[in-house]
């Protein structure tokens, strides 16, 4: 592509898919490198810090679990912001962003669930507890899967974007209600016997690897998101070119 020299002058310039692709191409190697460095540092910290006197080695699961859980929520927030962009400003890249965030967000949500239950088995003695947090993350996971299924079921990208934007936003409004209801339900059904992690202040010894890992996972998210968005733009471009070619063949 000849437009590598095009400079991004303002945020609105990002609306131009060609400029976006060019920018993504320039940014991606740097982001990927940063992600790799952060992961190297973070993983080193993960395995060199001391084990917790109470949780033992399993505290190391937290260095993955907590960032994954954060990102599962951040992924949905990114989708909600994009949905707003689709419906309010009709930003041409917003629906691309929303569509590409869904599988990545679902991946991190699945990771949060898996590591959560791997942590729960030695600590709680069971793989799955209908704990308030686990349950809300599980419902979030279902919402992700529903949105992915919806996007796959529709052929027309523009229509799919708007319809799923509505759904994303209603889901976003609903998240606090779900969280609240699950908390209510949990206190109703479970006497407070569940070990709480957030109750005690976290020692800086554990905070450092946690934050680095959170940063590393966030970078990973955005690297993947940017790359997926670029691919999605290409995909639409290919579809447009194919249509054009078919039209050309029909009229000739």
């Amino acid at each position: 592509m000849s437009d590598r020299s095009l400079a991004i002058r303002s945020f609105t310039d990002l609306a131009n898919p060609t400029r976006f692709v060019a920018l993504a191409g320039r940014l991606l190697p740097w982001l990927a490198g940063l992600t790799a460095v952060l992961f190297a540092v973070g993983l080193t910290l993960c395995f060199t810090t001391a084990a917790d006197y109470q949780q033992g080695e399993t505290v190391r699961i937290m260095y993955i679990h907590v960032p994954a859980a954060w990102l599962s929520m951040m992924g949905y927030s990114v989708m909600a912001a994009s949905a707003l962009g689709t419906l309010v400003w009709r930003h041409p890249l917003a629906d691309v962003a929303a569509k590409c965030a869904a599988p990545i967000g679902a991946g991190f949500t699945a990771l949060a669930l898996i590591t959560g239950s791997l942590w729960g088995k030695p600590m709680w003695g069971t793989w799955w507890v209908w704990d308030a947090r686990l349950t809300s993350v599980f419902i979030l996971f279902l919402m992700y899967l529903g949105l992915i299924a919806l996007n796959r079921a529709m052929d027309d990208a523009g229509r799919a974007a708007k319809v799923s934007a509505v759904l994303i936003l209603v889901g976003f409004v609903n998240i606090p209600i779900i969280k609240f209801s699950v908390d209510w339900w949990n206190t109703l059904h479970q006497p407070a016997s569940v070990l709480r992690l957030g109750g005690s202040a976290i020692d800086p010894e554990f905070l450092r690897p946690l934050l680095v890992m959170a940063l590393a996972f966030t970078c990973l998210f955005f690297t993947l998101h940017l790359a997926a968005m670029r691919t999605e733009i290409w995909r639409r471009r290919i579809a447009a070119m194919r249509r054009q070619a078919a039209r050309g063949a029909a009229s000739a």
Binding site: R60, H65, A68, L118, L220
Partner: peptide
């Protein structure tokens, strides 16, 4: 302790698999 290490290893394995998959 070794049993716990298996859970830790499984967690990191899951993280690796999911990240690699994405």
């Amino acid at each position: 302790m070794s049993a716990h290490l298996a859970y830790v290893a499984a967690s990191y394995g899951a993280a690796l698999i999911i990240s690699a998959g994405l």
